[in-house]
Design a protein around this nucleic acid. Structure first.
Lengths: 248, 248
DNA sequence: CTTCGCCGTTGATCCATGTCAACCAAAAAA
DNA sequence: TTTTTTGGTTGACATGGATCAACGGCGAAG
């Protein structure tokens, strides 16, 4: 297929129109004709090994990245060394949007496993957005979705208790695995307890204890990073049904 | 002045090029020629009385709003009634970006005082972005800035202690008042202790106590909503210099 | 195979912040 | 003006999650 296209650095020309992640990624919802025009958008792919940075806070912003394989975390660091995981990203999700604002990345993106991303030059994206009907809207939706997601995390951090936070986290992971064709009830977490804790505003011990409690109560099965959701309804109820009188 | 321009519903034709908030608002950084083309962007102004909603979660998304006068809060509400203030917005700032993602607003925007906004039809914004060089980038920057701001709030909620959160909040307010030509050291908060608490993930009593402590320590002067910053360096130090060994 | 280091679990204790309650001050209503 | 309502302060006490510490197991490296 597409034999006439020059071979890229990574051996295969990247093409959104040929990618099985379209449904999850930037081009979601775009017409076929628009989609074809998109193939020039993705310049190259880039492999990032586990624990390596895709970019760091302070790096000049030049491109955004679509995750083709693997997963990442993003975190921000305070001068005094405290840091906070601001998100976990899976295939099809977009990284790097934080850089547009100032032209400099404001957080770190680190691969949680050996991963690969599509490099999307921001200059090219801007240019193409003027031409390709639909791309602009899609891009705006991606950014807006990130804002809405962030508001959800604020809600979680600002007004939920430890077990509620973890339940919300697990349900969210499940939903995202499902969207990618994996089991909704059984999955492998790529991040450590400490990283989960940082994301949820909790200490790793608290995360571990909450996992154990959930297991005792028959809500989930835990073996290290391998999770089975046994009672999603129960988890959902846990989030809504706070202890009488209003939570924190 | 501007006698030749037709009188709009609100008595004055809105025009970005004539607005003294350009420096803070969407058109920031755009060329004069671009700016002139923008004047058709703002359809109308809308007055919102104190405590009234500019929009509600669930409302269909049609426009974004630039604050011309006054201030707002945005909040999200969980099914069980718990709610969380996700931000406070001042003149020149943009509201409504959350709606692009799904076509439906995902949070409430409420005026903290009698306010006025410029209504920017999103459809028109999209259209103009294709034509006006520079508008697209500016809009992207506005969205990206919101994402970066949200990450800062996550940091605050996830890894700072009560007094650190309040200090960060006060310094942030001061900085934003300054950008609007008001005193950096003395200002009037438009929101209640409860709203501040909700934003910072704290109870109103905790906010009140932190204010009192700051006052005792000579860092600030408090009289109800009227705040004087007496020792901004001290406040800044408070944020960085956590209790030995790493905070929460 | 063995060793080492990281990650996760669990227990005991402490403390920051939540909760409950009383009271006061300012602003709004009458 | 007086009354009422709302918002803010402060105290006493309760508690969820942090902290400190010990230990166990899996996986990587040799």
């Amino acid at each position: 297929m597409r034999a006439s296209v020059p071979i890229s650095v990574n051996g295969l020309k990247t093409a959104c129109s040929q990618c099985n992640l379209v449904e999850l990624c930037l081009p979601f919802g775009m017409s076929d004709s628009d989609l074809d025009q998109l193939d020039e958008l993705v310049g190259a792919r880039r492999k990032v090994k586990r624990q390596q940075n895709l970019y760091r806070a302070g790096d000049p912003f030049e491109a955004i990245y679509a995750i083709r394989a693997g997963s990442f975390k993003t975190d921000v660091v305070l001068e005094d060394g405290r840091d906070q995981v601001t998100g976990f990203q899976m295939t099809g999700e977009i990284l790097g949007l934080d850089g547009i604002s100032t032209g400099t990345h404001s957080c770190n993106a680190v691969a949680l496993e050996d991963s690969e991303v599509c490099v999307i030059s921001y200059a090219k994206l801007e240019e193409l957005s003027h031409k390709v009907e639909g791309l602009q809207l899609q891009f705006h939706k991606v950014m807006s979705r990130e804002i809405v997601r962030d508001h959800g995390v604020m809600m979680l951090l600002g007004s939920m208790r430890a077990e509620e936070r973890l339940a919300a986290f697990l349900l969210n992971m499940s939903q995202r695995f499902t969207a990618r064709g994996f089991s909704a009830a059984e999955f492998h977490l790529r991040m450590t307890r400490e990283e989960i804790g940082s994301y949820l505003g909790l200490k790793l011990e608290t995360v571990s204890r909450a996992f154990s409690r959930f297991q005792e109560e028959g809500l989930i099965g835990v073996q290290q990073k391998h999770i089975r959701l046994l009672d999603t309804a129960g988890l959902r109820k846990l989030i809504q049904h706070q202890t009488a009188g209003g939570g924190r």
